[in-house]
Simulated assay, not measured.
Amino acid sequence: MLDLFADEQPWQEPLAPGAVILRRFARAGGPALMQAIDQVAGVSPFRQMVTPGGYTMSVAMTNCGGLGWTTNQRGYLYSPLDPLTAAPWPPMPEAFAALCHDAACAAGYPEFQPDACLINRYAVGAKLSLHQDKDEADLRAPIVSVSLGLPAVFQFGGLRRNDPLKRLLLEHGDVVVWGGPSRLFYHGIQPLKPGTHPLTGDYRYNLTFRQAANNE
């Protein structure tokens, strides 16, 4: 299929105070990022985590970096070990770290140093309900979120679950960065619609970079 936007340069789209969408920012690096995802999943496979309430998440997940986001019967936590393999999570690939650094700088967060990257894989129908990213020790650090593959509708609200939502289509290569006043805004992904992407097939992948530990 001919991509009419293949030569279009990345651009910034303001989202909220402290938040921005970097459109097509990661598009050129897509093949290298997907290769890195495959390498991480070869060590720590994708799995559908179970919430403390017993709900099996529709999104398949894995992690890389010094810490990984996971769940158990007591709640949500960051752990240096993959509970599936009992080994450390794979190190963060250089392609991940370089992209995250460039995106954070472009969004105005040049000092961001992530120690965790949650990798989500969405099949058709998978979704992520509205939630806040609040399990990190230092909430002053931003979130950098990279979309790869099939498009999805991103919901971005406010500090309360019932605040009005913005609904924005995220396409392959789009990066969302939020921090500062919008760091704890509720957000989610609506159910993924059927489609095929030349790089990711029937899936959408999302990389979410976080500073999970307090570096002070």
Score class of each variant (00 low, 15 high):
Ser58Leu: 14
Arg210Pro: 15
Asn72Ala: 11
Pro52Leu: 14
Val43Asn: 00
Ile119Tyr: 02
Ala116Trp: 02
Thr208Val: 14
Ser79Tyr: 00
Ile37Cys: 03
Leu192Gly: 04
Ala86His: 11
Ala107Lys: 04
Gln48Arg: 13
Tyr76Met: 12
Leu118Phe: 12
Gly29Lys: 01
Leu150Lys: 06
Ser129Ile: 05
Tyr55Met: 10
Ala116Glu: 10
Gln35Ala: 10
Asp102Asn: 11
Ala32Asp: 05
Ala86Asp: 15
Phe154Cys: 10
Tyr55Arg: 01
Gly158Arg: 04
Pro45Tyr: 01
Ala32Pro: 04
Leu22Met: 08
Ala103Lys: 07
Thr85Ile: 06
Asn72Ser: 10
Pro191Glu: 00
Val144Tyr: 11
Ser79Val: 03
Trp69His: 08
Leu207Arg: 11
Leu22Phe: 02
Phe96His: 12
Leu118Asp: 09
Met92Cys: 14
Val124Glu: 12
Leu150Asn: 03
Thr56Trp: 00
Ala95Ser: 12
Gly54Tyr: 09
Val153Ser: 14
Val146His: 02
Asp202Ala: 15
Arg160Ala: 09
Tyr109Leu: 07
Thr85Val: 08
Thr62Trp: 05
Gly18Val: 10
Trp11Thr: 12
Leu99Phe: 07
Gly68Pro: 07
Val43Asp: 00
Arg24Cys: 07
Glu111Arg: 15
Ser44His: 02
Phe46Glu: 06
Gly53Asn: 13
Val144Thr: 06
Ala41Tyr: 01
Pro93Cys: 12
Asp38Thr: 15
Pro88Asp: 00
His172Val: 08
Leu81Gln: 03
Ser129His: 12
Pro17Met: 13
Tyr203Arg: 10
Gln73Glu: 00
Asn215Glu: 15
Ala19Glu: 01
Pro142Ile: 07
Cys100Met: 07
Ala36Asn: 04
Asp174Pro: 07
Ile143Trp: 03
Pro164Phe: 05
Pro17Ser: 12
Pro31Thr: 07
Pro194His: 03
Gln132Arg: 15
Arg24Lys: 09
Ala126Glu: 04
Val40Leu: 09
Val40Gly: 11
Asp135Lys: 06
Arg27Trp: 02
Gln132Thr: 13
Asp135Phe: 04
Leu207Gly: 06
Gln113Tyr: 04
Met92Gly: 11
Gly18Asp: 08
Gly53Glu: 12
Ala95Met: 09
Lys127Asp: 01
Pro194Asp: 02
Ala36Gln: 05
Tyr109His: 02
Thr70Ala: 10
Leu139Met: 11
Pro114Phe: 10
Leu84Asn: 08
Ala16Asn: 10
Gly65Asp: 11
Met34Gln: 06
Gly75Phe: 03
Gly30His: 08
Leu22Cys: 08
Val175Leu: 01
Asp7Ala: 12
Ala152Lys: 06
Tyr78Met: 07
Tyr122Ala: 09
Gln48Asn: 09
Met49Arg: 04
Arg47Trp: 04
Arg183Trp: 14
